[in-house]
């Protein structure tokens, strides 16, 4: 059957190449010379093409870091922009090696879909945006408010839970698309607009006067977003997981794109282990000793990536919040490299 297929394809004038090795994903990627990375079809700050057509964003940076660790070149990536619907199919069928597409880690996805979440690169959660002139400082003051949201999303259910649990009155006004919802909020159909906080900041940019609106500090749901790989290849799972951890560890040790060349000479044993001048941790992963140096030099540490794409250095201007390192008041925590 296989031969018949092949013969047919070649007759059609298209050659089928690629050697028939059933090695792991890491070896496949190395042989291929390019990483297949699944991203969104455009989500501000996480993955979107810039004016020159280069993909940028927090999720994109993770893929770039993986490519940098493997090839010492963050550009050896083929991006597959995926819709929410077909992202898992694309991963399961092997179209992509890693899915880095603001995907929430849930039990059912982790188990029955045959996927593994390799970590959390962004702690998101549902929040509220409101006009500054309403003088509301906390979600707890929202009793009696009308709330704009998108139909059929978990946001709607979360709001119901949150308000009922606190005996607060509310009125849901829902729309089918995010843009419609925003327009309704802007025209005053409702007092507040709710969706994931990262989305709120992105949507705020589409308002006529973004600085008139503020995002309330309360986060009423857990949306841990992270990179996903297929079940069945633990080595590849480790690589993706540790690339993320390496970026976090680099931030913790204050190793940045700027000071990486001095950091390599550092006598600090922790830094030495991270940057590969001591031990062979990179090789244990199937990479090279200087894998973290490559990541930091080409992409930067987690904090740099955050600031550049979604944080204060970007148009979105999202506070670090939960995404601060554990020793700075957040919950981003990476196991040590030793």
């Amino acid at each position: 059957m296989k031969r018949m297929f092949c013969a047919l394809f070649v007759l059609a004038g298209f050659a089928v190449t690629a050697p028939a090795v059933n090695a792991g994903v890491l070896d496949d990627v190395k042989n291929r010379g390019v990483l297949h990375c699944g991203v969104t079809q455009g989500l501000p700050g996480f993955s979107s093409p810039d004016d020159k057509g280069n993909w940028t964003g927090l999720d994109v940076d993770l893929c770039r870091a993986i490519a940098a660790a493997i090839f010492d070149d963050p550009n050896k990536i083929k991006y597959t922009p995926l819709t929410a619907k077909d992202r898992f199919t694309a991963l399961q069928s092997g179209e992509i090696d890693v899915l880095s597409r603001n995907t929430t880690w849930t039990l059912s996805r982790d188990t029955s879909l045959g996927l593994n979440f390799a970590g959390i690169n962004y702690y998101d959660g549902q929040g509220f945006m409101i006009r500054k002139d309403k003088k509301v400082a906390s979600a707890l003051e929202l009793s009696g408010a009308s709330i704009c949201t998108q139909t059929g999303t978990t946001s709607e259910l979360n709001v119901a839970d949150y308000f009922r649990a606190r005996n607060m009155k509310y009125e849901i006004v829902s729309f089918t698309t995010a843009d419609e919802t925003l327009k309704a909020y802007e025209s005053g159909r409702c007092d507040t607009f709710t969706t994931d906080v990262s989305q709120l900041y992105a949507m705020r940019l589409k308002l006529g006067n973004p600085s008139d609106h503020t995002v309330l500090p309360e986060v009423i749901s857990k949306e841990p977003l992270g990179p996903v790989v297929r079940h069945g290849d633990d080595q590849w799972f480790d690589v993706v997981k540790w690339v993320l951890f390496a970026m976090l560890n680099a931030e913790e040790m204050n190793i940045t794109q700027k000071n990486i060349d001095e950091a390599v000479k550092s006598p600090n044993p922790e830094v030495k282990r991270l940057l590969g001048s001591e031990g062979n941790f990179g090789e244990q992963l199937g990479l090279t000793r200087d894998w973290v140096v490559r990541i930091v030099r080409h992409v930067g540490n987690y904090g740099e990536s955050y600031d550049r794409n979604v944080g204060i250095g970007s148009k979105l201007g999202i506070e670090r919040g939960l995404n601060r390192l554990w020793n700075k008041g957040g919950i981003q925590y990476a196991p040590p490299i030793r």
């Binding site: 079809q41 455009g42 501000p44 093409p49 810039d50 922009p81 992105a202 940019l205 589409k206 148009k315």
Partner: peptide
């Protein structure tokens, strides 16, 4: 065109 709507550099009403 839709993909470029997501560019924060050009997000306007």
């Amino acid at each position: 065109i839709r993909a470029s709507f997501a560019d924060p550099n050009w997000a306007t009403p």
